[in-house]
Design a protein around this nucleic acid. Structure first.
Length: 156
DNA sequence: GCCAACGTTGGC
DNA sequence: GCCAACGTTGGC
């Protein structure tokens, strides 16, 4: 059982979108970075914990808790010429991009990026590392426990 | 809009 | 295999 932080632009898929989705589940489409893909393809397991992070928005930060809910399978958007995520070099026989489904667990009061940075317990979080751009990063058990038990507040 | 940092591409 | 050029990410 592992833990992850997964970035999503709320304009595309917010924690509310996840909560409203059928079965409260969304496929994590659009990852086009090999390291992030490899996490989904090779390491993630059903039941892994996910910190749902809002990025590239007015209030970046952790917006909710989710969970990995499928085994890996090909990202369908890579085959769709109309999609922003279309990849002409990928084929059905040897798909390049793999994803997992993620299921909603709960929405929390947003934990802003600045607050994450303010806690010494989280100083080593991968997502906070200088220059980090990776959209999926591993979270340690200690970081997960601190965030979910100390920082996460239920929304009203 | 700016810009630092990073990942990818492609010529050699 | 190297590395410059380019495109993207993402906070501010």
């Amino acid at each position: 059982m592992r833990y992850w932080l997964m970035k999503s632009e709320p304009d595309e898929a917010s924690i509310d979108d996840l909560a409203k989705a059928p079965q409260r589940t969304l496929p994590w489409t659009g990852v086009r970075n090999y390291q992030a893909r490899n996490f989904m393809r090779d390491i993630m397991k059903i039941g892994d914990g996910v910190l749902f992070y809002h990025s590239s928005c007015p209030e970046p930060g952790i917006a909710g808790i989710a969970e990995v809910s499928s085994t890996p399978y090909p990202d369908p958007t890579q085959f769709d010429p109309k999609s922003d995520y279309y990849d002409a070099k990928s084929t059905q026989e040897t798909p390049r991009w793999t994803l997992v489904d993620v299921v909603f667990k709960k929405k929390i009061q947003l934990i802003p990026l600045a607050e994450l940075r303010a806690h010494p317990e989280l100083a080593d979080m991968r997502v906070l590392a200088k220059g980090n751009r990776l959209s999926i990063t591993p979270v340690t058990e200690a970081e997960w426990a601190f965030i979910t038990k100390q920082l996460a507040k239920q929304t009203a």
